[in-house]
């Protein structure tokens, strides 16, 4: 009975949403803010990838907020899952996960450098090809995840993770403030370097630098999240 009520309510919701969106024809060209971005991104900033230009330059302040949200998520997870080590309970034998097989270990060792290089490539070339700081950071975290699940004794040093994250965040803010001082319009995240020419690796001015900082920060944060969760599993016991 309750399910029927819920399904009928959802049908009403879906019908109203469908009515709203069916006015917007699929695949039709529309004029809006996007034409401004598509014109100014290659001409003024010399950035080939328009999505990168929007994320880092036109909406750069928003990205700073988003990175902060991710940092807060990592911190909140650490706070929620924190537990004091009790003296008598060490590792719980029932919960101990078995060592990964030798094939997984060898493959992890083999794949880890390749994944690192792929991640670094993705965020260094973020202004030229699809990809960027978020994607590259996620790929790097995947590489660390591979090591974390294949080797039980592998540990990520939280000290270094925190340092990398803080330095990357600081450099983001510093680049933004430098843009306020040195840029021609004195606004946050303003470009103050030579923009270069389109489709060059050294093009786009500060955008490449900011995206590299975002890549380091996201990679460190996601690795921290995964490490917190996996270590909880290793020492997880029920009381």
């Amino acid at each position: 009975m309750k399910k029927l009520v819920i399904i009928s309510l959802l049908l009403v919701l879906g019908y109203s949403l469908m009515n709203t969106f069916s006015d917007i024809e699929f695949g039709k060209k529309r004029e809006g803010i996007s034409s401004y971005f598509l014109e100014h991104s290659p001409d003024d900033l010399q950035v080939a990838n328009t999505v990168t230009a929007i994320v880092v330059s036109f909406r750069g302040f928003d990205t700073l907020g988003e990175v902060t949200v991710l940092f807060l998520a990592a911190t909140a997870m650490g706070t929620i899952l924190f537990r004091r080590r009790s003296k008598h309970t060490g590792l719980n034998p029932q919960r101990k996960s078995p060592q990964a097989s030798r094939i997984v270990q060898a493959a992890g060792k083999l794949l880890f450098p390749a994944i690192m290089i792929l991640g670094a490539y993705v965020f260094i070339h973020g202004h030229l090809t699809p990809g960027g700081g978020f994607q590259g950071g996620a790929i790097i975290a995947t590489g660390f995840l591979l090591l974390l699940i294949s080797y039980r004794q592998f540990k990520v040093e939280h000290k270094y993770v925190t340092w990398i994250e803080s330095l990357a965040g600081l450099s983001f803010v510093t680049i933004g403030l430098l843009g306020m001082i040195l840029g021609p319009h004195n606004s946050f995240l303003e470009n103050f370097l030579n923009v270069g020419s389109l489709n060059d690796l050294l093009s786009g001015g500060v955008i490449a630098l900011v995206y590299i900082a975002v890549g380091f920060k996201v990679g460190a944060e996601l690795t921290g999240i995964l490490d917190t969760l996996i270590n909880i599993r290793e020492t997880g016991d029920i009381d």
């Binding site: 993705v122 990809g131 960027g132 994607q135």
Partner: peptide, 9 residues
């Protein structure tokens, strides 16, 4: 492609 890469990772 940007969104596809993010979603895949």
């Amino acid at each position: 492609p940007d969104v596809a890469l993010t979603e895949a990772a």
